[in-house]
Design a protein around this nucleic acid. Structure first.
Lengths: 142, 142
DNA sequence: CAGTATCCTCGAGGATACTG
DNA sequence: CAGTATCCTCGAGGATACTG
């Protein structure tokens, strides 16, 4: 997890990722929507590309223009973002910023995805899970 | 989400939280397990308490001893941690650090919880969800 | 055991102007 | 539009010693 954190564990990176999930793709748009200083944004995009989370693609020559798109590895970060979003809406509600509403395309309902057990299909919370293995001596979520 | 990030969005805070889910409760144990410098750890614990994620409880007087336990708000961060863990194990595999294994107490199976739609029960990925509302013009996960 | 006090460094990142 | 170059500040956090 420490390594995962080294990829996504800072404010600007996560804001950039959120925008990427909202289909933002261009430097100027990322800049306007996240408010990140340009040099910071450039550095974050570069390292996300290095980490294989975003892919840099040329969408025009003359002049050269580039866009950034989520890779499969990037798309797979969705649960992290959704969980963070959900927690923020639930516990840090803010009148200034309305909660983001998500719809499940499959069934059409407005929902917040939640964790379930792929083994039995039941919904799970921290209390339903326990850690096993090397850390088992002190394992087990509360 | 920016506010959620202001609570959990840094390396030491997330390591502290992970340890809290592993039932670590005491200052010295957090220090040993996360490796955070003592002043940094003290500051992080204090702000997690201020944010209502951890609760500081005296478990002994003479001498005074304190422990830190997850509040309900803190326990509810579990999906964020699990998602991060899962992503790290999947994409940043590292021979030095074996993946953490989780067992669902309910069915006994070793699993990694995944996102499902509370409306219809189907498993969901980024592609199955779309954003609606104020951000809808640029919404929709890839 | 559970912190606080002190000191020091170094690098992140804000502002801004510039370039192809 | 998609960045790079420059400059500057300030605060995070590492190391370490100390306290009740």
């Amino acid at each position: 997890m420490a390594r995962a954190l080294s990829v996504v564990g800072d404010r600007w990176t996560l804001l950039v990722l959120r925008e990427a999930f909202f289909r933002t793709r261009r430097f100027e748009d990322f800049q306007a929507r996240t408010g990140a200083p340009r040099p910071v944004l450039a550095e974050r995009l570069r390292s996300l590309v290095d980490d294989g989370v975003l892919e840099r693609r040329q969408y025009s020559d003359r002049p050269d223009r580039f866009e950034y798109r989520l890779t499969e590895k990037g798309v797979d970060l969705y649960p992290v973002l959704v969980s963070l979003l959900r927690w923020g809406d639930r516990w840090m509600a803010d009148d200034d910023e309305p909660p983001i509403t998500l719809r499940h395309r499959g069934c059409g309902q407005i929902v917040q995805p939640e964790l379930a057990c792929p083994g039995c299909g039941e919904w799970v919370t921290a209390r339903d899970m326990e850690a096993v293995g090397p850390r088992a001596t002190l394992a087990g979520a509360r």
